[in-house]
Each structure stands twice: as structure tokens, then as C-alpha cells.
């Protein structure tokens, strides 16, 4: 037993050192470069700054291009909150009826849901559809796009969870006079709370970090999302690495806060059903 414990301490220590080199050094590099002044950051060295310029860099990057980053944070927040809310409610409705009402249609619906998970979206035809609807280059359009692409994952999550809620509960509510809408929104949906949180957190991180869809469907500086500011600043800041990395740092913070608070839900969401189905 003691031998095993010593082995655990030794290999654990080795792992801590290795993990620091492999995983923490890149993040330390981001923080250090974001804290340097312009000349020093241009050297792109892994070193402590001789003078810490965190605040100056923060102010500079926020004010850059007429407060573009602030606008981008507002856009990204609206995009994330709106699309995740819609996605979760709509997917819960689908997952619920799919689980409760199996029929000849169910295999086809399953195939459609899986298709959404597997098939890469067709970009230019999507732009064509959005233009036809007058939604291209609008935040509304992008919200709906994120909803469409995120539905499949959420439906699978909800359908699996609804199966654990006893039908007797539905029946009791029906006897008490609840119609289908009340039955779902007042009785079933509140019971889905834990999996709703999981879906919200996993999808929020995904939408917030999404780069490809805003690039295609919401181009232009005026309504950039935070991921696009990185892309835009990059061409502008070829000599101002401190500001570019300050931008990276600011954009990295929200998902990390999510992780710090909702670690457990994220882990649950990404592994539910993955093992036994």
C-alpha cells in the first residue's frame, strides 16, 4: 500500500510538472504578453515584463477602433443569450414529444436529428436562404443559425433525460386538468432543470466561441462578435502584440468563469449517455 502511495506521489509530481509545461505555459504566455508594453511584446519572448502595463493595454484595446470590442461583447452576449434560450426551449419540446410519443415517424426524426449533428452545414446556400428572408448580415439571422445548428445536440440530451421522468406524473397533471402546454411548461420543463443547465452551459460556450458562423453570416466591423475582433485586430495589430494578446485574454475569461462555476454541469453534459447510452 505504501509503495503504491509513493508511486502515486512520484508520478503525480511528474504529471504536475509536465502539465505545467504543456498546458499552462501557453496561457502564461498570453497573460505575460498582454501585460507588456509594445516594444517588449514585439520580441514575443516568454519572460516577465520589465514594467507591467496591464491597465494601459486594457484601456487601449477597449478604446481601439471606436470601442469596437465593447460593441462586440454586447453583440456576443445578445447572440449567446438569445440563441441558447430559444434553442433550449425548442429542443426540449421536441425531445419531450419524441420520447413520449413513439410512432412510425420516430426513426425518421432520429435520422434528421443525427443528420444535424454530423452533416457540415452548406454555407453558400444558407446565405442564399438568409438573403431570401432578409436576414443575411443581421444578428437575428445569426441567432436563428446558431439555433438550427445547436438543436440536434440539445434534442438528444433532452430526449434521454425525459425518459427518466415517470409518465405517472404527466397523468396526474392531466387528471388535475392541465392541457398539453401547461403540462409541459409547468410540470415537465421544471423537472428538466439539471439538464437544461447542462445544455445552456455547453451551448453558451460553443456559441460564444463560434468563429466560423459569424464570419460567414455576419461579416463587417460594425456588428462583429468577439471572436471576429481577434481576426480583425490581428491584421491591424501586427506590431502591437500586447494589445492582440490582451484581446485574447479578455475573450478567454468568460468561458473560464463558466467553467469555474459550472464545472460539474459541463462534465455531466459532455459525458451523459456517452458511455452506456
Amino acid at each position: 500500500m505504501t509503495r503504491r502511495r509513493t508511486a502515486g506521489v512520484v508520478s503525480g509530481t511528474v504529471a504536475i510538472v509536465l502539465s505545467a509545461v504543456v498546458f499552462l505555459v501557453p496561457f502564461a504566455f498570453i497573460v505575460l504578453t498582454a501585460s507588456k508594453n509594445r516594444a517588449e511584446s514585439a520580441l514575443r519572448e516568454f519572460s516577465l515584463p520589465t514594467e507591467w502595463a496591464v491597465w494601459e493595454n486594457l484601456v487601449a484595446v477597449v478604446q481601439a477602433r471606436d470601442y469596437m470590442l465593447m460593441a462586440a461583447f454586447v453583440n456576443s452576449t445578445i447572440l449567446t443569450v438569445a440563441s441558447v434560450t430559444i434553442m433550449v426551449v425548442l429542443a426540449a419540446m421536441v425531445g419531450y414529444v419524441m420520447q413520449r410519443r413513439p410512432s412510425r415517424l420516430t426513426p425518421w426524426l432520429n435520422a434528421l436529428v443525427l443528420a444535424g449533428l454530423i452533416i457540415p452545414p452548406a454555407v453558400v446556400p444558407t446565405i442564399w436562404v438568409l438573403q431570401g428572408l432578409g436576414l443575411f448580415r443581421t444578428l437575428h439571422g445569426l441567432v436563428l443559425i446558431e439555433v438550427a445548428y445547436g438543436l440536434s445536440f440539445c434534442v438528444l440530451l433532452f430526449r434521454a433525460f425525459v425518459a427518466t421522468i415517470p409518465r405517472e406524473l404527466d397523468e396526474a397533471a392531466v387528471i388535475d386538468g392541465a392541457g398539453p402546454v401547461r403540462l409541459f411548461f409547468r410540470v415537465v420543463f421544471p423537472l428538466l432543470r439539471s439538464v437544461v443547465w447542462t445544455a445552456v452551459i455547453v451551448q453558451s460556450v460553443a456559441v460564444f466561441n463560434d468563429f466560423q458562423n459569424p464570419l460567414y453570416f455576419l461579416p463587417g466591423d460594425s456588428n462583429a462578435t468577439v471572436q471576429l475582433t481577434l481576426y480583425n485586430f490581428r491584421s491591424q495589430y501586427t506590431t502591437q502584440w500586447n494589445l492582440l494578446f490582451m484581446d485574447i485574454l479578455l475573450i478567454t475569461i468568460p468561458p473560464l468563469i463558466m467553467y469555474a462555476f459550472f464545472n460539474r454541469q459541463i462534465v455531466a453534459g459532455l459525458t451523459t449517455g456517452a458511455i452506456k447510452g
Binding site: I86, L90, A91, M93, V94, Y96, V97, R100, R101, L109, L112, G116, I119, P121, A122, V124, P125, T126, W128, V129, L130, L133, L144, I145, V147, A148, Y149, L151, V155, D170, V174, P180, L183, F184
Partner: peptide
């Protein structure tokens, strides 16, 4: 009747118009 099919509609509309239609159109 407790599990109405129209619950599929809102999700189906968004998914159909913005994912299925473009995929078929491609």
C-alpha cells in the same frame, strides 16, 4: 393529445429552413 405534434413545429421550422433546405439546395 397530451403530447401534441405541433411541439415539433417551431424547432422544425428553424431547422428545416436554415439547415435542411440549404443542404438540399447545395
Amino acid at each position: 393529445s397530451h403530447y401534441p405534434l405541433w411541439f415539433y413545429l417551431p424547432a422544425g421550422a428553424v431547422y428545416g429552413v436554415l439547415f435542411i433546405v440549404p443542404t438540399v439546395a447545395s
